[in-house]
Simulated scan of single mutants.
Amino acid sequence: MKQMSSLSASALFVVVIVLAQSAPSVAKDRTMTGNIRSFECGDNCYLTIVDTKKAEQVGLCVAPECANWNERTSMPARYKGKRVTVTVGQGQQLNDAGEVMGEMMAFKKIKFLD
């Protein structure tokens, strides 16, 4: 087998670097614990959780547990203040016509702790 010239090897290395940098990053889902502060709907429905560091975290409410809330555009009052662990990932914001407008944090699963 022939050896690559140093110029060819360098060019290949640059191509690999460029491709790696331009590839979309796939962030792994993570979990977060906190208390539900609020739920609001517009074109999308958003859940606000206050995490263990007292920071507000706002994300799309796409978890199966949100399905009825999203349909009714309101969350039953009994869930406000509930302690939860949520699975967090990325979700797509849609406009009223159903067109993708961007991505943001999304709550994919909700586990009620109390």
Rank of each mutant, 00 (worst) to 15 (best):
residue 28 K to S: 15
residue 18 V to C: 14
residue 114 D to S: 13
residue 4 M to P: 02
residue 76 P to V: 08
residue 23 A to T: 10
residue 53 K to Q: 11
residue 74 S to C: 03
residue 38 S to P: 04
residue 2 K to V: 11
residue 86 V to I: 13
residue 35 N to F: 03
residue 67 A to Q: 10
residue 91 G to R: 10
residue 94 L to P: 01
residue 50 V to L: 14
residue 49 I to S: 01
residue 18 V to T: 15
residue 74 S to R: 15
residue 104 M to C: 06
residue 85 T to A: 06
residue 20 A to W: 11
residue 101 M to D: 06
residue 47 L to S: 00
residue 33 T to L: 04
residue 60 L to C: 08
residue 93 Q to I: 05
residue 76 P to E: 09
residue 99 E to Q: 13
residue 83 R to F: 02
residue 54 K to H: 10
residue 50 V to C: 02
residue 9 A to Q: 12
residue 102 G to N: 07
residue 62 V to N: 13
residue 83 R to P: 01
residue 46 Y to S: 06
residue 57 Q to A: 05
residue 106 A to Q: 03
residue 89 G to R: 07
residue 39 F to R: 00
residue 57 Q to R: 15
residue 35 N to V: 01
residue 11 A to D: 08
residue 45 C to W: 01
residue 5 S to T: 15
residue 71 E to C: 06
residue 19 L to N: 09
residue 79 Y to K: 00
residue 1 M to V: 12
residue 4 M to W: 12
residue 96 D to P: 00
residue 49 I to M: 13
residue 23 A to L: 09
residue 80 K to M: 12
residue 15 V to F: 11
residue 27 A to R: 14
residue 87 T to V: 13
residue 18 V to E: 01
residue 82 K to P: 00
residue 52 T to Q: 15
residue 65 E to H: 08
residue 58 V to I: 14
residue 2 K to M: 10
residue 44 N to W: 05
residue 4 M to G: 06
residue 40 E to L: 07
residue 61 C to T: 05
residue 74 S to V: 05
residue 103 E to I: 05
residue 25 S to V: 13
residue 27 A to D: 10
residue 63 A to M: 01
residue 88 V to K: 06
residue 107 F to S: 02
residue 41 C to M: 10
residue 2 K to F: 10
residue 103 E to Y: 12
residue 5 S to P: 02
residue 43 D to E: 12
residue 101 M to W: 03
residue 34 G to R: 02
residue 27 A to I: 07
residue 108 K to C: 02
residue 81 G to S: 06
residue 61 C to Y: 02
residue 96 D to N: 09
residue 97 A to P: 00
residue 98 G to M: 10
residue 47 L to K: 09
residue 8 S to G: 04
residue 36 I to P: 00
residue 24 P to D: 12
residue 38 S to Y: 07
residue 9 A to D: 07
residue 52 T to I: 09
residue 16 V to T: 12
residue 38 S to H: 10
residue 56 E to S: 15
residue 29 D to Q: 13
residue 71 E to Q: 14
residue 23 A to F: 10
residue 47 L to R: 03
residue 2 K to A: 15
residue 108 K to F: 00
residue 49 I to Q: 03
residue 36 I to W: 04
residue 34 G to H: 01
residue 11 A to E: 13
residue 19 L to W: 06
residue 41 C to V: 01
